[in-house]
């Protein structure tokens, strides 16, 4: 159950963790939007790189206050590196010098770092409360909360089936593997459906009427 620790950092305690979740979500959205607007409008200004460093310094202070491990955050931010490499490669292949490559890298790294800090200091149910506060439709919030509760179990089932298949399958045909992965996915849907029925009956037993 390695995946049970996906958002383990959100369950720590620090001044940043204790901040109002609505404030944190609003700040993150504002931070990313401001970067997006400023780096687009003022990309020829000399002060813009200083602003990036200023933002980075500010995020470092928040990381320090939140007590999050820098290495783990770096690993999460690194998700974006293949995309940045691909973008640079596509520009080089076209022979166009990526004029704003520095801006692109700076703002995408800062944006993802802000997002990583948000989800590492805010629990998922707190984010759902913020969405409720901001009138995000109930059906979307309900789907998200069910999803968050049950996807761990589904990943576990998928991993078990994939492991069972790897142990028994001795061939090396990607075509057969593709067919078998499809079978695993299909069975996963059947099990999800059956689990939904059981969950529904359990909810009805406890007085659920749709509200």
């Amino acid at each position: 159950m390695r995946h049970a620790f996906i958002d383990k950092y959100a369950y720590r305690d620090s001044p940043v963790h204790r901040l109002n979740p609505a404030l944190k979500v609003a700040f993150t959205l504002g931070f990313i939007l401001t970067l997006l607007i400023l780096s687009g409008q003022f990309h020829d200004q000399a002060w813009l790189p200083w602003l990036y460093w200023g933002c980075f310094g500010f995020l470092l202070i928040i990381i320090f206050l939140s007590g999050l491990p820098p290495l783990a955050l770096t690993r999460k931010v690194a998700v974006i590196l293949p995309f940045i490499l691909a973008i640079i490669l596509l520009n080089l292949l076209a022979g166009s010098a990526p004029a704003q490559a520095g801006h692109l890298i700076a703002r995408s790294l800062l944006s993802i770092l802000a997002l990583v800090i948000l989800v590492s200091t805010t629990r998922f149910h707190e984010i759902l409360q913020v969405l409720a506060l901001w009138r995000v439709p109930r059906v979307i919030r309900l789907t998200l909360s069910f999803m968050y509760r049950y996807f761990f179990l589904l990943i576990d089932e998928a991993e078990k089936m994939a492991r069972a298949f790897r142990v028994r399958y001795q061939g090396n045909s990607n075509w057969e593997k593709l067919k078998l992965m499809s079978v695993i996915t299909g069975i996963l849907f059947i099990r999800s459906y059956e689990r939904a029925e059981r969950v529904y009956h359990a909810m009805v037993m406890r007085g659920y009427t749709g509200e």
Partner: peptide, 9 residues
């Protein structure tokens, strides 16, 4: 509702 949630998962 639970069907949508589990299908999303």
């Amino acid at each position: 509702v639970p069907l949508m949630g589990l299908s999303a998962a």
